[in-house]
Design a protein around this nucleic acid. Structure first.
Length: 212
DNA sequence: CGCCAGGGCCTCA
DNA sequence: TGAGGCCATGGC
């Protein structure tokens, strides 16, 4: 399969996605934590609560009472863990502002993020790409499932393997990786669902032999 | 109803 | 280093 062509099919169907859903780097970073294993609809409710409270703000998030933060982000699930994660990440970005992080070599920036409790590979890469404008491809459960169904790899391929393989073939820049991942999410949510996938109107139908 | 969602950490071998 | 358990709400 030609991945550039695959992307073209998605772009033709869905149009440019203009991601990430969030305006400021702060909002993108908060969203990246809150959306861990959670439906975006629920994340939006949590972000709305934070905004009303004036807490969509690193200073506030790093100093506010954890129980209060947990209460505000309750709809996003795992609220106790995520309240802690928001405090840790906020504290980090107060000391390492996004503008300064963007100037580091990407490997250094990634390592710093991964060293934080609560920030794994996907969250780190989402922040690197969507908040700090680094050219790195975010992959996720949708990516794993979609390309597994297309016969590209096994169902349990590790995160890093997916990322290496796709980036090696795509060789994109920040703008391209931004939209590629956004298109994958659109496809994964609305067509290539885990259960009851909507294959009839899929913009990138699986080869019959590989479909599952 | 039960399943699922744009993960990540801890434990235990 | 890998599998399994845990965290938790709300939509469908």
């Amino acid at each position: 399969m030609n991945l550039r062509n695959f992307y073209r099919q998605l772009l033709d169907r869905f149009g440019p996605r203009n991601w990430w859903p969030g305006d400021t780097p702060e909002e993108v970073i908060v969203g990246a934590i809150l959306t861990q294993n959670t439906n975006w609809i629920n994340v939006e409710k949590a972000i709305a609560h934070l905004r009303v409270e004036g807490a969509l703000d690193f200073r506030k998030l790093s100093s506010m009472n954890k129980n209060r933060v947990a209460e505000l982000i309750r709809p996003a699930g795992y609220f106790n863990q995520k309240a802690m994660k928001l405090a840790i990440v906020s504290d980090f970005f107060l000391k390492n502002p996004p503008g300064k992080m963007s100037g580091l070599p990407i490997t250094d920036a990634r390592e710093k993020l991964l060293s934080l409790w609560g920030v794994g590979e996907e969250t780190a890469d989402s922040i690197l790409l969507y908040a700090l404008d680094f050219p790195i491809l975010v992959v996720d459960a949708y990516t794993r499932r979609i390309f597994h169904r297309h016969g590209l790899w096994g169902a349990d391929i590790p995160y890093g393997d997916m990322q290496k393989r796709l980036m090696k073939e795509l060789k994109g820049d920040t703008v391209f990786y931004n939209d590629f991942h956004a298109q994958i999410v659109e496809l994964g949510k609305n067509h290539c669902r885990k259960s009851r996938p909507s294959c009839a109107d899929c913009p990138v139908p699986c080869p019959a032999s590989a479909a599952k």
